[in-house]
Write a protein that binds this DNA or RNA. Structure first.
Ligand SMILES: Nc1nc2c(ncn2[C@H]2C[C@H](O)[C@@H](COP(=O)(O)OP(=O)(O)OP(=O)(O)O)O2)c(=O)[nH]1
Ligand SMILES: [Mn+2]
Ligand SMILES: [Mn+2]
Length: 418
DNA sequence: TCTCGATGCCAC
DNA sequence: AAACGTGGCATCGAGA
């Protein structure tokens, strides 16, 4: 089995990944320079404001100093301290509770966002391009315990998208003249895999009907009709869906839901009552893991859990959560996407399109190509088809009622793909 | 200049 | 507070 995974899934894409890195992705350096100027100016203004309100200058980047200023000098009270070193937590979720308390909080949150964007992306990425203005980041085929890729130097799998200020960074990733960026992302991929592996009747039916669980949960949680679900609401629903499946506690769920503890408990119970097949499957995976000390993906990719029978509750519980996550995450964003990379390449080659489509990014369940404009539609069709048919084409000839759906988009830059 | 753990936050 | 999972990376502060 492991031999098959190597021969059929990993080995055939080694050269494709190498090609992707060598080809790189085109960067609009001028755009980044301008963005940097504007954001730095705003950051300086925020710095002054914060010093003024605090009545003293300090290093805002130091959580230790910030905590002392807010909670000692300014006398704000936070619910919790950190246990070990006794200093205050200053993370966003804590600060947000104090937002109405003092105007400094709003400025600190804005400062944090800009500082993050500038120091991690805007002031780093243009410096790392080659003479061709292309960025040749690394994609590690065995970068994770579940079989996912990782990316580094820089990491191109975590480019901002949630906030407007962050999303603008994606506009600096562009297609060359006469080319477009063409993107493909699997719809609700790990939910679909969860439905397949568990055989849950209701969840399978939802996907057969072409429905969207992320949006459905968002609609329920925010009490608005499906048509009025925006990206932010859907993203929050994602956290809830995957959180529940992978062992989130009720306290944490309550934070995501925004209601009372009782409501959260009810939501949780109701969720697994609706998807009882999923619940039973997850319990079964735990039992399997305790006996075998490993779990495996649809294709037999294994991960071992030495702590699964530990008497230390924290370690055992953590092992259980990782044990139920690995088969689903591994099937979706390792087995499936890697086969998709392989078959897409094969089909492009057979259609004589390989010199007109270049893989430039892999983002877990998403592939981004730079393609010659004139062949856009043709290429889109080939790749989407390859991605959606990987399971039946694979050596497993896997048949399932759960369809794999891919959403595609294209544009002149990564921020404006539609 | 480097390492390290802690803190914090970006994405999927 | 915490105990959805998988990652990478900037910064601080202590220590070489
Ligand atoms: N455990 C966990 N997994 C996540 C989370 N966010 C994303 N993932 C995993 C599961 C997703 O299916 C997979 C791909 O992420 P996407 O952003 O593409 O979401 P998804 O495919 O579910 O929905 P989509 O229809 O593409 O918007 O990555 C998360 O917050 N927790
Ligand atoms: Mn997706
Ligand atoms: Mn995705």
């Amino acid at each position: 089995k492991l031999d098959k995974i190597y021969e059929e899934i990993e080995k055939p894409i080694i050269h494709i990944i190498k090609k992707m890195q060598d080809y790189g992705i085109l960067i609009d350096k001028k755009y980044f320079e301008n963005l940097s100027k504007g954001y730095h100016k705003e950051l300086d203004k925020l710095t002054d404001k914060i010093y003024k309100i605090a009545g003293l200058e300090f290093n805002i980047n130091s959580p230790k100093q910030l905590g002392e200023v807010l909670f000692d000098k300014m006398g704000m009270k936070s619910s919790k301290k950190k246990n070990s070193n006794g200093s205050f937590s200053t993370k966003v979720s804590v600060l947000e509770e104090l937002e109405e308390n003092n105007p400094i909080i709003k400025e600190i949150l804005a400062y944090r966002e800009l500082q993050k964007l500038l120091s991690t992306y805007i002031d780093v990425i243009p410096k790392m391009t080659g003479e061709d203005d292309r960025l040749h980041a690394k994609f590690l085929q065995n970068g994770t315990t579940t079989g996912r890729f990782s990316s580094q130097d820089p990491n191109l799998q975590n480019l901002p998208i949630k906030t407007e200020l962050g999303k603008r960074i994606r506009n600096g990733f562009i297609a060359g003249k006469g080319y477009k960026l063409l993107t493909f992302d699997y719809s609700q991929i790990e939910l679909r895999v969860a439905a397949m592996l568990s055989g849950d009747k209701k969840m399978t039916q939802i996907f057969c009907d072409g429905k969207d669980i992320h949006s459905g949960v968002a609609s329920f949680v925010f009490g608005v009709p499906l048509e009025k679900i925006d990206g932010e609401m859907r993203r929050k629903a994602k956290v809830i869906n995957f959180g529940i499946i992978y062992g989130m506690g009720v306290s944490s769920l309550r934070k995501s839901l925004g209601g009372t503890r009782e409501e959260a408990q009810k939501f949780y119970d109701n969720y697994f009552n609706q998807f009882s097949g999923l619940r039973d499957y997850l319990e079964g995976v735990k039992v399997f893991a305790m006996k075998q000390v490993y779990t495996e993906t649809l294709f037999g990719r294994r991960r071992y859990f030495p702590n699964i029978n530990s008497r230390i509750p924290f370690l055992k519980n953590m092992a259980e959560r990782t044990a139920i996550n690995a088969p689903i995450q591994g099937t979706a964003t390792a087995d499936i996407i890697k086969l998709a990379i392989r078959y897409s390449e094969e089909d492009l080659k057979n259609a004589d399109l390989l010199n007109k489509a270049h893989l430039v990014l892999q983002i877990h369940d998403e592939l981004v190509y730079e393609v010659e404009e004139g062949f856009l539609m043709e290429i889109e069709k080939v790749i989407k088809n390859a991605m959606q048919t990987v399971l039946e084409r694979s050596y497993l000839h896997y048949k399932t009622n759960v369809p794999l759906i891919v959403h595609s988009g294209f544009g002149d830059n990564f921020g404006e793909v539609k």
